[in-house]
Simulated scan of single mutants.
Amino acid sequence: MSQNLITQEFGIIIAAKNHNPAILNPDFLKYSGIVPQEWELVQQPISTQNLSQLAFTNGIMIVAEPTRVIFIEAIEQKAIKEITVAEIAKKYVQTLPNIQYEGVGLNPRGYISFEQQSAASQYLVKTLLSGGDWQSLGTAPMRATLNLVYTLERCPFYLTVSEAALRNPDESNIPIVLFNGSFSYEVKSETPLQRVTNLHQIIDNWQTDLSNYQEIINTKFLADLAAQKTVISDHLILNSDTSIAA
């Protein structure tokens, strides 16, 4: 059982009006300098009328939709200096400055693991929730997902806490509790240049938000768990052969 927060990925979601998903393709990204020429795809691109998706072998995935573009990087085996998703998002915005960008979410995701699913459930229903008869309704133990909203000085912080499982290569599962966070920023601007400048300023704050997310989870949610060990370092480690199944 790991009572440490393992930070698995970091995402940047940019809300935009009338964004054309067809823009997203490997040639556009490479010839415009958004990603290096040597980057390789892990699978064939996905392209439909309302969605385009590119996944690279280095753990970065980009998804384009009519109302947003999503940049996600798996950071489990990377040092802070090796994380590049923020620079990719900034280059994308700078290359397409005339899109009406409206907001940005800086979204870290992490988890803690347990030896048994019941222990993960108990953490949610007993550690984070007050007991009562309302928990005993039904023929099976209640399962819970918490959606929390915090008003921070610089922006709202949204946090979803839920049960899930890590699926190992041998198809066995490790019970976990997920902590999905989102620091939500509004883009305030009147011109394309101002929008790009504002977006870059927000995205440049990603390391601070990642560190604050880890501190919030470790000090506010995990402080009472046994064998607490803080994992806020330059190296964020997770077995790359595992995947999360909700």
Rank of each mutant, 00 (worst) to 15 (best):
I83R: 09
L137W: 12
V42T: 10
P26L: 08
L159D: 03
Q43T: 11
K17M: 03
Y31L: 13
L236E: 04
L148V: 11
N25L: 08
L124S: 06
A79Q: 11
F183C: 07
A16W: 04
L124W: 05
I217K: 02
I176M: 11
I34M: 06
Q117I: 08
E9C: 11
T57Q: 15
E40C: 08
L128H: 03
Q135P: 03
R195I: 01
L146A: 06
N98K: 14
E40A: 14
V85R: 03
T84N: 08
N239Q: 04
Q122W: 00
T197D: 13
A165P: 00
V85G: 04
N239D: 13
P169C: 03
N173H: 13
T48G: 09
I75F: 04
Q53R: 14
S240D: 09
T160N: 14
Q77S: 10
Y158A: 11
N198L: 03
T7M: 07
I70L: 13
A16R: 05
P156M: 07
L124G: 05
K17S: 12
K91H: 13
T139R: 14
Q194R: 14
K188S: 15
I232L: 04
E87D: 15
T191C: 12
R154M: 07
L225P: 01
I13V: 06
Q135C: 03
L106H: 06
T127Q: 12
V35N: 01
L236F: 06
F71P: 03
I202C: 13
E171L: 15
P192L: 07
Y123L: 09
D204M: 12
T139M: 12
H235S: 04
I72E: 09
I174A: 06
Q135V: 07
E87C: 10
I112N: 03
I23H: 00
I232Q: 02
T57P: 01
N147S: 14
Y31F: 14
Q94I: 13
L5W: 06
F179C: 07
A119M: 08
R109I: 08
S172I: 02
I174P: 03
P108C: 02
L210F: 06
I75T: 13
Q201L: 07
I174K: 10
L24T: 01
T127W: 08
T67I: 02
N25Y: 05
S211Q: 13
V231D: 00
